[in-house]
Design a protein around this nucleic acid. Structure first.
Length: 276
DNA sequence: ATGCCGTGGAAACCACGA
C-alpha cells in the first residue's frame, strides 16, 4: 500500500501536474494540502476520472486539505482538530482506509516569529499532539501525513544557521515536533534513510531547486502498529522540476499488507522471527 | 537581509506562503 503526501499549492492551478503525478506514481492514498479552493471548487470530477475517490475540506483562498483513495472513497473519521471552536482554518482531515487511519494535516507556517501567527502555530501543534495521543491510545494503525512546516533536525535544512530564527526551525517548533515523536511515532523517511540529505520543498526563487537549497518539511509519521510494515519511503523529486509545479514535491511510503494466516495476525520482527 | 516566485481574489494591487 503506497501512501503519499503532496502540498499542491493550489489544486486547480496544479491540476495537470497533480493528474500527471497520480498516473505516474499511482499512490493508493494521496493526502493533499494547500488546496486554495473553496469546498465547491474542488476538482472532484477530474480526480474521479483519474480513478480516485476523495474527501476534502476546502476554504476560500487559503489552506484546504484532501484525502484521495484509488478505486474507492475514503471513510471520513474527522475534519478539523478538536480544542478550538474559533479556529476555522481547513488544516486537518482524517479517514479510515483499508484498516488504517490516515490523518492529513497542514500545520500553520507561523512566520513572522515571534508574533500572533507563531503563537497560533504552537497552539495548533499542541492540539495536534493531544489528538495524536488519543489516536495512539486506541492502538490502531495510524499514519499522520502532511506538511508539518517543521525541519526536525539540521540534516533537514540546506543551511541550518540561516533558519534558526524562522518559525519552521525555531527551537520551540522543533521541540514541539520532538514531543509529538516522543509519544511513539516513527518518522518514516528518516528511519529508512538515516543520515541522508532528503528535501521535500524548494523555494520558487533564488534558483533553489537547481542549487538543491531545500527543506524537509513534509512528513509521514507511523504509529507503532505500522512500524514493522514499512518497506520503502521516498520523495518524487523530479516532480519539482516539472512546468507549473508546486514548490513541494510528493513524499511517499509503502507499507506491506498485513500478513494474515487463518484468523491469527502475524507480525514480522526486524530480526526475522515471527510472533503472533 | 531580502517574497527575487507563485497562487488566489479582488481589483489592476494585496495577502500569504516558507
Amino acid at each position: 500500500m503506497k501512501i503519499a503526501t503532496y502540498n499542491v499549492n493550489g489544486v486547480n492551478g496544479r491540476l495537470p501536474v497533480l493528474l500527471r503525478w497520480l498516473e505516474q506514481s499511482r499512490p493508493d492514498v494521496a493526502c493533499l494540502q494547500e488546496l486554495k479552493a473553496p469546498e465547491e471548487k474542488f476538482p472532484a470530477l477530474a480526480i474521479q476520472e483519474a480513478g480516485y475517490g476523495a474527501i476534502w475540506h476546502g476554504q476560500k483562498s487559503w489552506n484546504g486539505v484532501a484525502i484521495l483513495m484509488r478505486g474507492g472513497k475514503p471513510r471520513e473519521t474527522a475534519r478539523g482538530l478538536p480544542g478550538d471552536p474559533e479556529d476555522f482554518h481547513s488544516r486537518y482531515i482524517e479517514a479510515e482506509i483499508n484498516g488504517i487511519v490516515i490523518g492529513c494535516l497542514y500545520l500553520p507556517n507561523g512566520n513572522p516569529a515571534p508574533g500572533p501567527k507563531f503563537d497560533y502555530k504552537l497552539r495548533w501543534f499542541d492540539r495536534l499532539t493531544l489528538h495524536a495521543a488519543s489516536m495512539l491510545a486506541k492502538k490502531v494503525p495510524v499514519v499522520l501525513a502532511g506538511d508539518f512546516n517543521v525541519m526536525p533536525t539540521d540534516l533537514d535544512v540546506y543551511k541550518p544557521e540561516s533558519w534558526v530564527d524562522d518559525a519552521l526551525f525555531r527551537p520551540e517548533t522543533r521541540a514541539a515536533f520532538h514531543r509529538l515523536i516522543a509519544q511513539g511515532w516513527t518518522d518514516a523517511l528518516r528511519i529508512l534513510h538515516p543520515g541522508e540529505k532528503i528535501y521535500t520543498f524548494w523555494d520558487y526563487f533564488r534558483n533553489a531547486y537547481a542549487r538543491n537549497a531545500g527543506l524537509r518539511i513534509d512528513h509521514l509519521l507511523l504509529s507503532p502498529q505500522l512500524r514493522n510494515r514499512l518497506v520503502a519511503a521516498g520523495v518524487d523529486r523530479d516532480v519539482r522540476g516539472w512546468e507549473k509545479t508546486s514548490d513541494h514535491a510528493p513524499t511517499w511510503i509503502t507499507l506491506r499488507d498485513e500478513p494474515v494466516v487463518g484468523s491469527v495476525k502475524l507480525v514480522e520482527m526486524p530480526c526475522g522471527q515471527i510472533t503472533s
